[in-house]
Write a protein that binds this DNA or RNA. Structure first.
Lengths: 304, 304
DNA sequence: CCGAAACGCGAAAATACCTTTCAAGTGTGA
DNA sequence: TCACACTTGAAAGGTATTTTCGCGTTTCGG
């Protein structure tokens, strides 16, 4: 039995092009030696594809066991599987050579460079997120949200804004959505949830207690729970029926993780929203039109 | 001895994409069973890449030995080598069918296409924004904000979230910033502003009365005013000392302008923030570190 | 039509490769 | 300082691939 689908609960998408991104996402949860292996693989996929387990183990100064463990963590069945993916990736990058080297944003960068670097980084983040997003999970999340009686959203800090953004949009197409910012009220409200309701937790770190707690309660109450997180192996996933992974961009001193993760989260949220809007098109379209119409009156006429 | 170069006089190049052609060329010099194997490989490279020698042997009704012999004849070191090449080839042809990401998002697009299109659109928006952003205006805005006694931010609807995002970040580096959502309170507060203060209005349409009004008051009071808008010719610009232009992405029925403008606004806001952080690095760095430290304690430990 | 030689082919042995287990090493918190 | 949990590589255990070997078949000269 070669093709058994022994999918792992954590990372399961074979990830075609987004390997580098995946390495970055999972890197924090890796041990030192695993990181060495992952790094080698991300650095030179083509080269590694030519190596056997033993070869890669020697190259990275680790053992075969570690190599296999790393492959598993990255979502593959084993090293053999990873190697095949690597071969595919190598063929890919051979055709589309994109150098695009960007250095970190420095304190003394002129403003024009800041704009360019920031824009490039965010574009990269979007590409990574799109590539790494599990469409099956997303589809499931969309289905749940589209038919939900009510949707509760939890987020803290920067993520709370993403939650509000989602809530705003869902409300616009006539769904009952609410973004909670107060953790106490969130829990209090979560108790009211039951099967047929949907709870969405947004946390980059995957371990924000204030967000996990209401999700846990919702989960226990039988609601369908969704986690949007950059750490799919984090505690939040315990209570999530569907996990949507955001990508982790490089962060620097001037650009904390909270900031770069937002871009990724917003893309995921937008996808979720569009998906839901598609499913509920009959009611969504008129609702959108109506809200647009209502807003038009709040604009002052444009002077020419 | 695995890698002995027992060269075959006929074909020796690993043949990247021209596998089908090679099969046809070599076909006459193959025995019947080898032809069956070669045919299977040429027909469905991706499928074969997923099979082991044994699997492919069974599929073609031949033996492992024959499969290996065929691989050799095709110019590979063995079946393992062929399989890797096959994987690469499969990845290639997969990338061939792009989901026509330039078209609008349709109601019946599969979820995977939605993700691709959305990501592509947002990337485009970022590029446009970065290209169209006036760095002189941005520099001036940064200077004003970096030295401001206090910063008030106005936004309505989706833009209010962008305002909050900016306020959150400025607060994190020790500046006094406040994002107003209530138009009445915004005006009431704007009255307090004076020279040395900064007011920022965020409006995509450039004509949102609720946002223009407080900016006007601030302007009249002598504060430095900044407008972040997609319509630099709109009414809001009358009262803005510095205008930062966001780009307008294509909008469609499923994707209202409010949604696509957000990406652009956030990039501008990020640039503004980074600029300010650079200028106030001495105080910003420790403040960032402190807020990071404070948050660390709100994370539940990660289960391994 | 017959027999010998060459060839095609697959079963099974041999090998290389991958995976799992396990125990020793290492750091960490009480 | 001890106990505990986590890392890690060595080695055992399985699979997949390659090689060997010999049987059956075809071919061709007599």
């Amino acid at each position: 039995m070669t093709n058994q689908v022994k999918e792992s609960f954590i990372g399961d998408a074979p990830a075609p092009a987004a390997l580098a991104a995946k390495v970055r996402t999972l890197s924090p949860s890796m041990t030192r030696s695993m990181q060495r292996v992952a790094e080698a693989v991300a650095d030179d996929p083509a080269g590694c594809a030519a190596l056997t387990v033993t070869g890669l183990a020697e190259l990275t100064g680790t053992s075969e066991a570690t190599v296999v463990r790393t492959a598993r963590l990255l979502g593959y069945l084993g090293y053999r599987d990873l190697r095949l993916a690597l071969a595919g990736l190598a063929a890919h990058q051979e055709s589309g050579r994109a150098p695009a080297i960007t250095t970190d944003i420095a304190v003394d960068d002129p403003i024009a460079d800041v704009v360019a670097k920031l824009a490039y980084d965010e574009q990269q983040t979007l590409a990574d997120t799109a590539a790494g997003l599990d469409t099956v999970q997303l589809g499931a999340a969309v289905s749940a949200a589209a038919t939900a009686r009510r949707i509760d959203i939890y987020g803290a800090g920067a993520s709370s804004l993403v939650g509000m953004d989602l809530a705003q949009k869902l409300l616009r197409i006539g769904l009952i959505a609410h973004a909670h910012t107060d953790p106490h009220l969130a829990v209090t409200n979560a108790v009211q949830l039951r099967s047929g309701d949907v709870a969405i937790a947004i946390t980059h770190s995957g371990s924000t207690g204030d967000v996990i707690e209401p999700l846990r309660v919702a989960f226990d109450r039988g609601a369908t729970t969704i986690a949007i997180t950059g750490r799919p192996d984090g505690p939040v996933s315990q209570y999530a029926d569907h996990i949507l992974t955001t990508s982790t961009a490089r962060e620097s001193e001037l650009r904390p993780a909270a900031m770069s993760s937002r871009t990724s989260q917003l893309l995921v949220v937008d996808c979720l929203f569009i998906g839901v809007a598609q499913r509920t098109y009959e009611s969504a379209a008129p609702a959108l039109a109506a809200s647009y119409e209502a807003l038009a009156h709040r604009h002052t006429p444009r002077r020419r």
